[in-house]
Write a protein that binds this DNA or RNA. Structure first.
Length: 277
DNA sequence: ACAGGATCCTGGGGGC
DNA sequence: TGCCCCCAGGATCCTG
């Protein structure tokens, strides 16, 4: 589910609701998430003050005082919200943190349980333990770095964009939207891109993600922001989910294929290299 | 090195 | 109404 724009929206929504709050009680569903929740973490978390909440790729990091870091990943169907204690508890709520406001709680709901929540001493410990090596944030990614990454691999552009160690935060929707915006065929090999094409793709990623954040991300099924609001970018998709519908640029029907194990939407005409168009 | 498939889960939609 | 199959914003592991 949630990719960078959705996670960023959650973090922005939660910031005013969580920062300077303390966790005064913790409850778990007992159902396992992607990573096992350790009961011993609860003693560390209880009474802790939330100093900051931030995003890294698709990960949510909550900095605690006097020490510690709560790290969450929303997987495909995760929802992290602050709601009134009076709000009926939905099914699939796996973690609940009561806040010291007395009438609010942080809830982690995840239908498919592909998400995770873990506690770490500090960020370094998380980075060391996390098998996923995260690449740069798309907004900070240097042109040269990206060109060189592309030049070194035979993988498809789609597979490269989905690889969190190349660039952090892009997922299936925004990979397709970025490739469409950059007019690049998702099946092209990284190595085959011209410099100008690589730069175009890097800029397209930034453009697409920035715009999606403005719309508070995309809600297709389950995604909601930190206060329960749905996203709006699903109505702005240029290519994702538009199978068989006419391309907005050239009217050619949008194609959907499987690539890098994921459904991939693209215009078979205007995403071709110039030479073959 | 890379592609593809299976896996972890639940739920919704379509076809019959 | 029910059943079966396929699909889904992610990531990882295994095979060839």
């Amino acid at each position: 589910m949630p990719e960078l724009p959705e996670v960023e929206t959650v973090v922005r929504d939660l910031r005013p609701l969580l920062v300077d709050r303390r966790f005064v009680a913790i409850r778990t569903s007992g159902q396992s998430l992607r990573a096992q929740w350790e009961k011993t973490w609860e003693a560390q978390l209880l009474g802790s003050l939330v100093r900051a909440i931030r995003r890294r790729g698709k990960w949510i990091l909550i900095d605690l005082e006097p020490a510690g870091l709560l790290v969450l990943h929303l997987g495909m169907t995760g929802q992290l919200t602050v709601v009134s204690t009076a709000t009926a508890v939905e099914n699939h709520v796996h973690l609940t943190f009561d806040l010291d406001t007395g009438d609010q709680q942080l809830r982690f709901r995840d239908i498919r349980r592909f998400g995770s929540a873990t506690y770490h001493q500090d960020e370094q410990e998380w980075i060391t333990q996390n098998p996923e090596r995260l690449g740069p944030e798309p907004f900070d990614m240097e042109a040269r770095y990206f060109r060189e990454k592309l030049a070194k691999t035979d993988r498809s552009l789609k597979a490269i964009l989905l690889d969190q160690s190349v660039v952090a935060g892009v997922g299936n929707i925004y990979a397709d939207e970025s490739l469409y915006t950059a007019k690049l065929d998702p099946r092209r090999r990284g190595r085959d891109l011209q410099k100008t094409e690589a730069d175009r793709l890097r800029k397209a990623i930034v453009t697409v993600l920035t715009r999606a954040i403005k719309y508070r991300g995309s809600t297709i099924r389950n995604y909601v922001g930190g206060s329960g609001l749905k996203g709006g970018y699903q109505d702005e998709f240029l290519v994702y989910g538009r199978t068989e519908k006419p391309c907005y640029r050239c009217k050619t029907p949008i194609e959907c294929i499987r690539l890098a194990g994921r459904s991939t939407h693209f215009c078979p005409a205007c995403q071709l290299p110039e030479a073959r168009r």
